[in-house]
Nucleic acid binder design. Sequence first.
DNA 1: CGTCGAATTGACTTGGTTCAATCGACGTGG
DNA 2: CCACGTCGATTGAACCAAGTCAATTCGACG
Lengths: 246, 246
Amino acid sequence: MQNGSMEEKRLDIHTAGVPLVCRSCEARHKGMCGALTESELVTLARQTRIVHHAAGAELAAEAMPVESYANVMRGVVKLTKILEDGRQQIVGLQFAPDFMGRLFSRESVVSMEAASDVELCRVSKGALERMIAENPALEHRLMQQTLRELDEARDWMVTLGRKTAAEKVSSFLYLIATHIDPTTEGQGLSVFDLPLTRGDIADFLGLTIETVSRQISQLRADRVISIEGVRRVTVPDLAALLARCG
Amino acid sequence: MQNGSMEEKRLDIHTAGVPLVCRSCEARHKGMCGALTESELVTLARQTRIVHHAAGAELAAEAMPVESYANVMRGVVKLTKILEDGRQQIVGLQFAPDFMGRLFSRESVVSMEAASDVELCRVSKGALERMIAENPALEHRLMQQTLRELDEARDWMVTLGRKTAAEKVSSFLYLIATHIDPTTEGQGLSVFDLPLTRGDIADFLGLTIETVSRQISQLRADRVISIEGVRRVTVPDLAALLARCG
DNA sequence: CGTCGAATTGACTTGGTTCAATCGACGTGG
DNA sequence: CCACGTCGATTGAACCAAGTCAATTCGACG
């Protein structure tokens, strides 16, 4: 074999420079790794492992101990909470290059599930926390992301508490379009694959599957969106979609 | 006058030791100031000012620039967001000794209003940010609080998205009882004054005033709570209330 | 005692859920 | 290659929890 495995390549890096796996990783620029120098990045990369999970894989369970953190490299992860009787609510979605895991807590307060096929860059809890302790810039970067997540959670509380079913579904589609489709800045045309099933969307919006389906059909009838299959969505005019978000 | 104003007292402290105003402040122990040494506390205290606001006072407006942060010393502050058409959602409540303000952001993403009469310990944005920059332990403390707020926001998303009106009102009363009444640990009897009007409660729960009122009446009829006036609530058995939270 | 805003209560309407039937894409085995 | 079963999505019809609209009632305060 001409090349070793990806793992071997990474372990073989002893010179300075950005590790191979990090070269195309968004976290290097927009995620937590942006706080690191090249040599720190090399140190961290030695302790990480790229892992793949198929859609539906349970990555962490509510109230279960967690011994690692991760960065999302590809795909979408959903964060969920459930009531004892089974009612479920999705309380967050993580896209690349988001950081995953509840820092400084021994157990997860949410459960995490791969919504689509995902690729994660995993690091042990201890290793990352040691790195954070001696690198305030890294904690600062993670603080910034946490604050952004808090802003997003609060935005979503307005959607959950005060919007109609039609506005909720529009808000969801707008959220996905602006997070997944790289070609848009909230303007014009957008085409993407929904990373969530109708059931997931319902759990995210606090609705039932049937209501989500009806609202999507209505948006289609009103020509705000068009759909091929069940997942591929085309939004001809994002502004028109935004106008329906309440 | 035998004593100078509270302000003068604080400015007069040049010796080491905990500043007078800080002696009885919960933030010293459970809030962000717990990360500071005595001398750092003295430095910070020189740049703070205690301010009072009456219930209803607007402390910061959504999308308006903010030039100061604060710690809640007494009372309750509500964080709200509104849709263009006036629908409003309360996205968070802050109790002593919570930190108030969106760190590292030039404008507020929520508006803040005094829910009850409040006492705040205000500090300029620049002064605190400078202190954070040279004191990683302080940023760590604030990170911990931010993470806790994120956990709370996500808990509340479940309430907003998946609970019935009856469960929402019970959840709200339980939240207030456990945050305001010092005599309980989520067990047994609790007596407290509601810091929010029925309208506020409705905005917190994503309900209407009428529905909140009906659910409170129902809880009273079921002897889960009793009420004197409109604000003073007695919960004879918190466990019974918790059992209705879904 | 009267006024005014907040809270409660009642009657009715409705948006979203529930229950049920059907559709459609996909994978399996005959 | 096609029949069949499965599972997610869609659609329809009936129902109900919460909203709306409309009186009262309560409580604080002058």
